[in-house]
Nucleic acid binder design. Structure first.
Lengths: 195, 195
DNA sequence: AAATTTATTGAATACAAATTCAATAAAACT
DNA sequence: AGTTTTATTGAATTTGTATTCAATAAATTT
């Protein structure tokens, strides 16, 4: 293994430990020394790999933002409701196998909301899932599978729900995932108000 | 105004400013001096009213836990779906008038999840809304208005969604509230899976 | 194999912010 | 009016922890 590869390995290892600890204990309650210990190195060495604790966080958020770009890609001829349902199903099952996905959701949520360094927040804003889903919802409204209403608000509520549920699942890894249909039902025609 | 009343006033004022700042900037990024400034007093005086920053937080969380007890009280003969819908409608409209309600939601969420002092987390756990709503859901399942499934999981998802949405609204005070029906649709029979 | 670059450590430093404190003013009480 | 209690301040202290640093080891290059 070349020097460069080794460094990459090490960085990845640090990042994964940091992610877990940031979510388990919170960013501010996680000491650089905790991360160092988890990654089996001295505190000082951390600064050989990352300039600062904040850079560590920002790097994680960048990864998270990158990851969400997968959402809402080519959907071929599938109807929007089926697409969203299927997307959620895959996301839940993927996350069950890769628990860091839950952690990433939690971290992104925390960062977007408040109480995190400025730079990290900026990195988290480079995510347009809500906008893209709103377009999908508009299509569904035209075809009648989704009820009427401001598509952007509907999309925000949809993702806020998903966010909340992912966070709940992140807290309790034993928790059974909901049926994706339940969540998509929020958008469907015939679900109460029909204005 | 008696001395005691004055003290209570002052404490309440401090608490409300702390709540706002904790949510706007996050607990750890809020300095005692920031709260002092907002409440128009010297930093030192804060410690006359509260033993520590942590006690301030814990007190807020206790208030929040107290507040949620309102949820799920006497529902008379109203069907569970109507009850929940109505409950959410009132909550949203109440929160629009009293923005601190949003902040309280966000704070409670942050505290329950992670990265907050131990004691505050404990205070936040004294909330059994999820369990009480699960009972309501079971009733609805018997009468057929709600679909089948583990009522506790359904309740957790329901509240996780509400939490997520309240947080979204807290971030953007301009955001229009969703129709409560959308959220209750998560639970309703005929919403996709019918196992 | 000498020289240079990279990895690693643990202790020293710097710093920010919570908390304490001594002193003063105001109020309440006798 | 004098005494005690409460309110208030701003500066001094303490503390916790991120970051730097000087020194050493290991690897890579020449």
């Amino acid at each position: 293994m070349t020097r460069k590869e080794q460094k990459e390995e090490r960085r990845k290892n640090i990042l994964m430990n940091a992610l877990r600890l940031f979510v388990e204990r919170g960013y501010y309650d996680t000491r650089i020394s905790d991360i160092a210990e988890a990654a089996q190195m001295s505190t000082g060495l951390m600064f050989h790999y990352f300039e600062s604790k904040e850079e560590l966080l920002t790097e994680l958020v960048r990864m998270g933002a990158e990851g969400t770009k997968a959402a809402g890609r080519e959907m071929g001829d599938i109807p929007p409701d089926v697409y969203l349902t299927e997307f959620l199903r895959r996301m839940f099952s993927f996350a069950k196998e890769q628990p860091w996905v839950f952690n990433m959701f939690v971290l992104m949520g925390q960062v977007r909301r408040a109480g995190m360094p400025e730079e990290a927040r900026k990195a988290a804003e480079a995510v347009d899932t809500v906008e893209r889903t709103a377009k999908l919802i508009e299509q569904g409204q035209k075809s009648g599978v989704f009820h009427k209403g401001d598509a952007l608000i509907m999309s925000r509520c949809f993702w806020a729900s998903v966010q909340g549920i992912m966070e709940e699942m992140a807290m309790d890894k034993e928790m059974k995932a909901p049926e994706p249909e339940w969540i998509v039902a929020m958008l469907k025609a015939g679900s109460g108000d029909e204005d």
